[in-house]
Amino acid sequence: MKVIQRLLDDKLAVFCLLVISIVMIAGVLSPVLAPHNPLELNVFNKYAGISKDYPLGTDQLGRCILSRLLYGIRTTIFLALLTMFVTILIGTILGIIAGFFRGKVDEIIMRMCDVMLSFPAEVMILAIVGILGPNLMNVVIANIVAKWAWYTRMIRSVVIQYMDKNYIQFAKVSGCSTSHIMRRHILPGVSGEVAILATLDTGWVILNISALSFLGLGVQAPTPEWGMMLNEAKNVMVTHPTHMLAPGIAILIVVGAFNFLGDSIHSAINPKLYQKKNNRSRMNVFTRNKKFISK
């Protein structure tokens, strides 16, 4: 497909995909890759520096930081991906139903979306975590509840656009079943927009999960999680400031990769943006401002 071709041509996008894949594989293989058990306490060895045994040192309870970082991938990223998957699933189903069938069903779903969207997302998440209790599953549920309305809205509008197109009318008239139309025609059209939003939102969700864990409302000790690790690092800031670096950099790299990827998908799908991106590199500094052109 042209879009995938353009995406693969973009070196930055490929790099980001690589980074994300490496991180995910590391998460899956963390029992193999981690030098120690992340929960293993070794109080006599606390605050150890970088060594062959402990590549990133140990924290205040003597646990290996690298191992906690690797296992943290599972908690932070996989949960974020789960959240995104469920959100998109709900959004897609409701959006397609609303856009395809219109009428009463559409009205009801849209009113629900309106009410959900009239709340700021952060408040909604806090509310749900507050009411259901602070634990990791509730954080996931909160994120899903906060975001599904966006996707439903967006997918519905794309579906409505497509419904007007002639080939859908033809398919309807020629007797194709509803599910067939949805699968073959509407889903591919919608997938582009969804891909962009989803990639950018994954970064947002990762930041959210780690923020809530930082506050103590998400993950509970001693499960390793990057936000939680930063919270623990905060407490020893005066004596061991370096502990703040590793988890923060990890979050930065992963969220940055997702953001860049989202941007690249956006350019790949929209050919005009893609052109601009490539043309700019051909200009050199001197041609940019007419004043400097010497005759």
Binding site: M283, T287, R288, N289, K290, I293
Partner: peptide, 9 residues
């Protein structure tokens, strides 16, 4: 009138 875009010579 000298109003062309900067990348036009």
């Amino acid at each position: 009138l000298g109003l062309t875009s900067p990348w036009l010579q």
